[in-house]
């Protein structure tokens, strides 16, 4: 089984769009001196973005200069919108002319709150969830849940690297102490959830009807209790082992993936002391290697086989 392939990585190599011809079915790009009609490929795996604005806009510096009178940003936003519309179509066109597609461009972002809402309506157990914007509401929730509340981003957390610094935000536990000493009276509407006292976490990678699940035991180290990614000083790495979702959970989760029209993605759960599987979120562009490698699922081989068996 050996197939030729093209890998389009964001920011890795410059690629330029040559032309699109709907009649002749051509979507021609030039990369590294070579041209490819992307519609010649009959299988596609999409993870995060393939084509980016940088691939279309050669000199983004020019867009920083003003163009219209009395208005500094309209032209930039307008051209970026134009670029995104085109990028959207490029992915759509490739997906629609391919025989086999794993992962879709339009699914690269999911709304966490929408997914939680859908999960609840299907019968999955989810953490009690609120969006609040005042200290008074926070204090009320803290008391109601005995200091066991957490906050996290509604969309993505902060994950930024500048030349000199790296910035990160994680899931944080909010105690009455922190709230009174550190937070302002009112704030930008923020996501609050009742903290799940976990025995272990579960990541389930879903691919076309099958789950490849992993349990993560991180309880033994305090730093990783709220968020297992915070492993800075932990001496022993978290224990990552194969896991079998209980049938009921697996059935409901399959339903959720179907309702969301997703053929792949990675779901997160916390399992509490009673054995209840509390659904947290679906990451539609989840990395499978972080599950595949520790559990020896060889998902990369499964995907390669799916892409080439057409």
């Amino acid at each position: 089984m050996e197939k030729s392939f093209l890998r389009i990585n964001k920011n890795e190599r410059s690629m330029s769009l040559q032309h699109i011809d709907l009649k002749k079915k051509e979507l021609v790009v030039k990369r590294n001196g070579q041209t490819y009609n992307l519609l010649d490929f009959n299988a596609v795996l999409e993870r995060r973005s393939g084509f980016t604005v940088q691939d279309l806009v050669n000199d983004s510096q020019v867009l920083e200069e003003s163009l219209f009178h009395e208005e500094t940003s309209y032209h930039k936003e307008h051209v970026l919108k134009e670029a995104n519309e085109l990028i959207d179509f490029i992915h759509y066109y490739i997906e629609n002319t391919s025989v086999k597609v794993i992962g879709k461009y339009e699914h690269r972002k999911l709304n966490k709150l929408k997914v939680l809402y859908l999960a609840t309506s299907l019968g999955l157990s989810v953490p009690e969830t609120f969006v609040v914007s005042t200290k008074a509401d926070l204090i009320r929730l803290t008391k109601e849940y005995c200091n066991n509340i957490i906050t996290k981003a509604i969309s993505d957390g902060v994950y930024l690297f500048t030349n000199l610094h790296g910035y990160y935000s994680y899931t944080e536990r909010l105690t009455l102490d922190t709230i009174t000493s550190k937070l302002s009276t009112s704030f930008f509407p923020s996501l609050i959830q009742k903290e799940v006292k976990k025995l272990y976490e579960v990541r389930s990678f879903y691919l076309e009807g099958a789950f490849y699940s992993m349990a993560i035991f991180s309880q033994s180290d305090k730093a990783t209790q709220t968020d297992y990614r915070k492993q800075g000083k932990a001496k022993l790495a978290s224990r990552m082992v194969p896991y079998q979702l209980p049938d009921a959970t697996s059935a409901l989760l399959t339903k959720l993936f179907q309702v969301l029209n997703l053929t792949t993605g990675s779901a997160d759960f916390m399992v509490d002391e009673k054995g209840e599987h509390v659904f947290l979120e679906i990451n539609p562009v989840g990395q499978f290697s972080m599950t595949s490698i520790p559990c020896n699922y060889q998902i990369e081989k499964i995907i390669a086989e799916k892409l080439s068996c057409i």
């Binding site: 022993l236 194969p242 079998q244 054995g275 699922y297 081989k301």
Partner: peptide, 23 residues
């Protein structure tokens, strides 16, 4: 030595596959 833990349902924790392959 963090080699194991107590669980309610052992069937949720399958053995790891020892299948091996390499591209």
């Amino acid at each position: 030595n963090n080699l194991g833990t107590f669980v309610q349902d052992i069937t949720l924790f399958p053995a790891i596959s020892l299948d091996w392959d390499h591209p």
